[in-house]
Simulated assay, not measured.
Amino acid sequence: METFQTQGIRLPRLGLGTYRMQGDVCRAAVESALALGYRHIDTAEMYANEDAIGAAIAASGVKRSELHVTTKVWNENLAPDAMRRAFDASLKKLRLDVVDLYLVHWPKPGMHLPSMFETLMTFREEGRARAIGVANFNIALLKTVVEELKAPIACNQIEYHVMLNQSKVKQYMDAKSIPLVAYCPLAQGRAASNETLVAIGKKYGTSAAQVALKWLLDQGGVAAIPKASRHESQKANWDALSLTLDDDDRKNIAGLPKNQRFVSPGFAPAWD
Rank of each mutant, 00 (worst) to 15 (best):
71 T>M: 03
71 T>C: 04
73 V>L: 12
74 W>A: 13
75 N>V: 03
77 N>W: 09
79 A>F: 05
82 A>W: 02
83 M>V: 01
84 R>S: 05
84 R>D: 06
87 F>I: 01
87 F>M: 06
88 D>M: 02
88 D>N: 13
90 S>M: 01
91 L>S: 03
92 K>Y: 01
95 R>N: 07
95 R>Q: 15
95 R>P: 00
96 L>H: 00
97 D>L: 01
98 V>Q: 14
99 V>R: 04
99 V>C: 10
99 V>G: 05
101 L>K: 03
101 L>D: 01
103 L>V: 07
105 H>M: 07
105 H>W: 09
106 W>M: 13
107 P>C: 08
107 P>W: 05
107 P>S: 07
107 P>M: 11
110 G>P: 02
110 G>D: 08
110 G>I: 08
111 M>L: 11
111 M>D: 06
114 P>T: 07
116 M>C: 12
117 F>D: 03
117 F>V: 03
118 E>F: 07
118 E>N: 13
119 T>K: 12
120 L>K: 04
120 L>M: 15
123 F>G: 03
123 F>L: 13
128 R>S: 00
128 R>V: 00
130 R>E: 06
130 R>I: 01
132 I>E: 00
133 G>L: 04
133 G>F: 01
134 V>H: 02
134 V>C: 11
135 A>S: 15
136 N>S: 11
137 F>S: 04
137 F>M: 14
138 N>Y: 09
140 A>C: 04
141 L>A: 11
142 L>P: 00
142 L>N: 12
143 K>V: 07
144 T>F: 02
148 E>R: 12
149 L>K: 09
149 L>W: 08
150 K>Q: 14
151 A>Y: 03
152 P>R: 10
153 I>D: 02
155 C>P: 02
156 N>A: 10
159 E>W: 09
161 H>N: 14
162 V>P: 13
162 V>Q: 08
164 L>R: 11
166 Q>G: 08
167 S>G: 05
167 S>F: 05
168 K>E: 15
169 V>I: 15
171 Q>Y: 10
174 D>E: 13
176 K>E: 13
176 K>G: 08
176 K>P: 05
177 S>N: 14
178 I>D: 05
179 P>I: 11
179 P>D: 11
179 P>L: 12
179 P>C: 10
